[in-house]
Computed example of a mutant assay.
Amino acid sequence: MSAIYTTDPATNERVTLSELARRHGIHVSTLSRRHAEGLRGQALINKIDFAAHLAAQNAKKTQEVERREWIMAASMAALSRPLRHIADAWKMVGGAQ
C-alpha cells in the first residue's frame, strides 16, 4: 500500500500520514479515517473534546430511551382500548351490522 501524503497544518510541509501522526501524537489509524472522511488541514489533527463527545453520546442514548418508552406507551394505549370501541369502529367503516 502506498503512503498517503498531506500537508502538515502547523508547518505547511508535505508529509505522510504516519509522520503527521508522529508529530501530533495522534494514532495513524485515526488520521487515516479522518482523511478518508474528507477532513484536511487543522480538522485532520484536531484533538477530540472528550467531555463534549461523552455528553453527545449520553444525549443520544437518552433520546433513544425516551423514544422507546414513548413507543411502548403508545402501543399500550392502543392495546388497552375496550373491545367495545373496536366493535364501534368496525361498524363505522361498514362492517357487520
Rank of each mutant, 00 (worst) to 15 (best):
M1C: 07
S2I: 06
A3H: 10
I4S: 11
Y5C: 00
T6H: 00
T6L: 00
D8I: 12
P9I: 08
P9G: 07
A10H: 09
T11E: 07
N12H: 10
N12M: 11
E13Q: 11
E13C: 04
R14Q: 05
R14I: 06
V15F: 03
T16I: 05
L20H: 04
L20S: 07
L20C: 02
L20W: 01
A21M: 02
A21N: 00
R22N: 08
R23C: 04
H24T: 11
H24Q: 12
G25A: 02
G25N: 13
G25H: 06
I26N: 04
I26T: 06
I26S: 07
H27I: 01
V28F: 11
V28R: 12
S29T: 14
S29Y: 11
S29C: 06
T30L: 11
L31M: 07
R33A: 09
R33H: 12
R33Q: 10
R33N: 12
R34T: 03
R34F: 09
H35W: 14
A36C: 00
A36F: 03
E37T: 02
L39V: 02
R40S: 11
R40D: 08
Q42H: 03
A43F: 08
L44T: 02
L44A: 08
L44F: 09
L44S: 11
I45R: 01
I45Q: 03
I45D: 04
I45F: 10
K47H: 13
K47P: 05
K47G: 14
I48P: 03
I48A: 14
D49P: 01
D49T: 01
D49R: 08
F50K: 15
A52G: 10
A52H: 12
H53F: 11
H53L: 05
L54Q: 15
L54W: 06
A55L: 13
A55W: 09
A59D: 14
K60V: 07
K60Q: 14
K60M: 15
K60F: 13
K61V: 10
K61F: 09
K61E: 13
E64A: 14
V65L: 15
V65Y: 14
E66P: 06
E66H: 09
R67D: 11
R68G: 04
R68L: 08
R68D: 07
R68I: 00
R68Y: 00
E69M: 02
I71R: 15
A73M: 13
A73G: 10
A74K: 14
S75I: 01
M76W: 05
M76R: 12
A77P: 04
A78W: 04
A78Y: 09
A78L: 14
L79D: 11
L79I: 00
L79H: 10
L79N: 13
L83R: 11
L83T: 09
L83D: 13
L83A: 12
R84F: 10
R84H: 11
H85S: 10
H85D: 05
I86K: 07
I86Q: 05
D88C: 00
W90N: 10
W90V: 03
K91Q: 14
V93G: 00
G94S: 09
G94H: 09
G94I: 06
G95F: 00
G95H: 02
A96I: 03
A96E: 03
Q97T: 12
